[in-house]
């Protein structure tokens, strides 16, 4: 076991050191997919979460409950659903998106948006409660108050983005189904890991896993530096 792990680390650094073109290509596809998925999920999920977070209407608790349930969507089920929708005979089959990075992004956006919306709602609702009377007393309008509530949660939103990105980059079930793990096209790190595992190449699979973790680590380091900078600028 340990020799496998050591071998995996050696391989990981060797792969990164030698500038392996296939690895670079897979990393590039992975980043293309994860950056897009996480950004689109934020673009859709944050406004939804914020809106539910600041709205007070009968039935709100049911909406929150549904949102939180959707956070647990099984990736494989989303993969199958998107597959059925976009395969040749499906309603969106004409678009010809099967086995493309675009479709992987679509599947991941469906998977991650509820998580982003749920996290946003959980952060915004108490922030809104804490400031709503003050803001209303200043004569601010509803839209402005909602934006201010989101502003109160900006650090949580950074954390939410990191989670969205990490979830996207580490996800395998949905992208395997709709992407097909096609070499030079839709192969990403997780599907490459799964493939190598299936072929018994444990240390190579682990090596790819290590590289994936290093990417996430790098992103987190950048994000905390940004956050620290932001805090400093905010006095």
């Amino acid at each position: 076991m340990w020799s496998n792990v050591t071998a995996a680390f050696e391989k990981a650094f060797a792969l990164m050191g030698e500038g392996n073109t296939l690895l670079n290509e897979i990393v590039a596809t992975t980043m293309e997919m994860s950056v897009q998925s996480s950004l689109y999920a934020m673009l859709i999920g944050v406004p939804i979460g914020a809106l539910v977070g600041v709205a007070r209407f009968p039935g709100r608790r049911i909406v929150v409950l549904i949102m939180r349930t959707l956070m647990g969507l099984p990736a494989v089920a989303v993969g199958i659903l998107v597959y059925l929708l976009f395969s040749g005979t499906g309603p969106f089959g004409k678009l010809g998106l099967m086995y493309s990075v675009e479709l992987m992004v679509i599947a991941q956006v469906i998977l991650i948006t509820p998580v982003v919306a749920g996290f946003t709602e959980t952060a915004v609702a108490p922030a809104y409660d804490a400031m709503r009377d003050t803001a209303a007393g200043m004569g601010l309008n509803k839209a402005k108050i909602a934006l201010l509530a989101v502003n109160e949660t900006k650090y949580q939103l950074v954390a939410t983005y990191l989670f969205a990105f990490s979830r996207s980059i580490a996800e395998v079930g949905a992208v395997q189904i709709v992407g097909g793990n096609i070499l030079h096209k839709t192969r990403v790190m997780t599907t490459a890991i799964a493939l190598n595992y299936n072929m018994g190449q444990f240390s190579l699979a682990l090596a790819l896993g290590i590289i994936l973790m290093l990417i996430v680590l790098g992103l987190n380091v950048i994000a905390s530096a940004l956050q620290a900078g932001l805090k400093k600028r905010n006095g």
Binding site: D133, T134, G137, M138, K144, E152, N234
Partner: peptide, 21 residues
């Protein structure tokens, strides 16, 4: 104009707080 019992400071500079709205 209304100032609730619990004062609230928005997450921005004092000047930005003053210029809200």
């Amino acid at each position: 104009g209304y100032m609730p019992q619990k004062s609230f400071a928005f997450d921005m500079s004092l000047t930005a707080n003053m210029l809200l709205g």
